[in-house]
Amino acid sequence: MSDIGAPKLVRAPALRRALAGTPWRRFIILAGFALVWELYARWLDNGLLLPTLGATLSALWSAILSGELPNRALTSLRVLITGYALGVVIAAVLTTFAALSRWGNEALGLLTSMFNPLPAIALLPIALLWFGVGTPSLIFVIVHSVLWPVALACYGGFLAVPPTLRMAGRNLGLSGGRFVAEILVPAAFPQILSGLRMGWAFAWRTLIAAELVFGVSARSGGIGWFIYTNRAQLETASVFAGLLTVILIGLLVEGVIFRTLTRITVQRWGQVQT
């Protein structure tokens, strides 16, 4: 049989490719925003209400150099990752169960519709009662904030797997856990990925909020605690530095980890448009 030839591709010129991307536009918007901030803060001239961008950055820099901010951030991230991983694992177990049995299916549907609208932070008082002031309470609310959106996304993804693909899998004699792991999960990966993304965003917000509500002990608090104590001491520039850190970490995870994950998986597989 005659082979089908490979298609020819011509690359666009480098300059046009660079201009077609979005980074430079974002950079200009960001610079404009920074300029407005700086000018307005100078005009306001009230460091207690709104420190200048320069003051914020220098507070950020000294907090990083002193090792306080990195320590706080690490504390937060450690709690976050523990809770996130736990939430994802529980979500995986629940959805597997739901994909394989009618009872599991109903249970998951009921639980997600009940708990998904409940803000995780609203569970904090209960968590404090059950687990006391400390990391376990934080992990509890984070698990709650991750579990439901991830489970919902996974389950929706499983339902959306085309019947032909399911049959192709079963045709190979796959069933049970192997069918879920090797057919359903990769087939539903676009939805799972967006669920993980959403779960991450919820978890991060929930954590910072929870840390703001109760400070743990001064030594072991996270970024939320850093923001809270600095506000109490009227170190507004440091408060802003803390907020900036929250944003930066959020951006980093979203822009680096999740974007890379998207690029090497669903984008490569043609399951989402770029």
């Binding site: 085309p162 032909t164 693909l165 049959m167 192709a168 990769p186 087939a187 043609g270 399951q271």
Partner: peptide, 8 residues
Amino acid sequence: EFDQLLPW
């Protein structure tokens, strides 16, 4: 159907 192949 064309989606019988595993896209990944």
